[in-house]
Design a protein around this nucleic acid. Structure first.
Lengths: 196, 196
DNA sequence: TAGAAACGATACCCTCGGTATCGTTATGGG
DNA sequence: CCCATAACGATACCGAGGGTATCGTTTCTA
């Protein structure tokens, strides 16, 4: 078997991810070199390349392993309220320095098809699936209609957030989130809201 | 005066922009080198750097000078119809190879604050201003309400287009555009549509 | 305890954006 | 008409950075 030899250092693995997260969140992907990440982690450059095939994959893993759960759906009394709160979480995430991770990866993905696929498969689609299930729960609860295209609705909900993050056309503040949520509600709520 | 000496070659200027547009539309910003652009234009590299300070600015100018008018607002019977048709134009533009220019510039702007400012000032904001005037015309015509935040509405209209262009989460096809337009209308149309 | 593989360090390669400098060429003010 | 001036194409060069190769050393397991 391939089980012989010195094992990979989990400490080095974790230190590299942590260093990559810190540096890229603070200064952005392009401004940080692989040498810096390795030095910050107290590790040789070659150790980094033994664990990951390239710089972008390190940052992708840092995003998923260290802060992937930061935008999970919060518990709430209704599916709609959970959706609304998740929008606020996503906005806070985008406003924070960690938003730089998303900006960096989307930027690199424009010229790196493998990274683009990985970003969709590992970050975007799982989150979209969460939103889809939430919306379907809201439909089951009778608070949303059932006759709209869910994918398009998700794009309209989250597209404007990514737009402001990447284009910097305006603040991702509470007013903006509330307006976006209300606009979604206006177009998709059930005509007769179920009451109890 | 500084009017002495050999004048700048307008032919070289135009050839460089055309070469940059062709190559970047086909293969993307990062995959095309400055040497290639100059060679394709039949020009020395230094001539390029005499006309522009860096690679990104060349592509920015190519976008504005060669295809800036491609997404102007079409004439129509009503402001709303003009807006709807402009969405279709923008979608066709994003679907075409020229969409690579936008993807490239947004990508580079993530690590180049000057480019980010130029992209907003020269591309985004003028187009947003056109949308704003169109929306205000629609309000004046009585087909839209007057009590919503126009900037947020613009982000919701166009944000999902940029989202699909940059994230590749779905096709920017007619169905998507129509759904997006209808969702905007549902949330912002006047309660009593004016008829004649 | 011996072989295999990961470790940190470091030298190296290659591409590419941008600069410097060459001799040459086109202009326009005097 | 002619000469100072600046742009021209070509080419050598610089520096940064991603990724590789190789060193002697260390740590594991069979």
């Amino acid at each position: 078997m391939g089980t012989t030899g010195r094992p990979r250092s989990q400490a080095a693995h974790a230190a590299i991810l942590k260093a990559a997260l810190r540096l890229v969140a603070k200064r952005g992907f392009r401004a940080v070199s692989v040498n810096e990440i390795a030095a910050e982690a107290g590790v040789g450059k070659m150790t980094l390349y033994r664990h990951w095939p390239n710089k972008a994959t390190v940052v992708m893993d840092a995003l998923l392993e260290l802060i992937g759960a930061e935008t999970a759906f919060p518990e709430a009394d209704s599916a709609l309220e959970s959706l609304r709160r998740q929008l606020y979480l996503q906005a806070a995430f985008f406003r924070s320095s960690r938003g730089n991770l998303i900006r960096s990866l989307v930027s690199e993905a424009q010229s790196d098809p493998e990274l683009a696929t990985a970003f969709r498969d590992r970050w975007l689609n799982p989150r979209r699936e969460g939103v889809r299930q939430n919306i379907q729960a809201a439909i089951s609860e009778g608070s949303l209609r059932a006759d709209f295209n869910i994918d398009t609705a998700i794009d309209q909900l989250y597209g404007s957030l990514y737009y402001r993050l990447l284009l910097g056309s305006g603040a991702i503040d509470e007013q903006f989130i509330e307006d976006t949520y209300q606009q979604f509600l206006t177009g998709h709520k059930a005509r007769q809201s179920v009451r109890r």
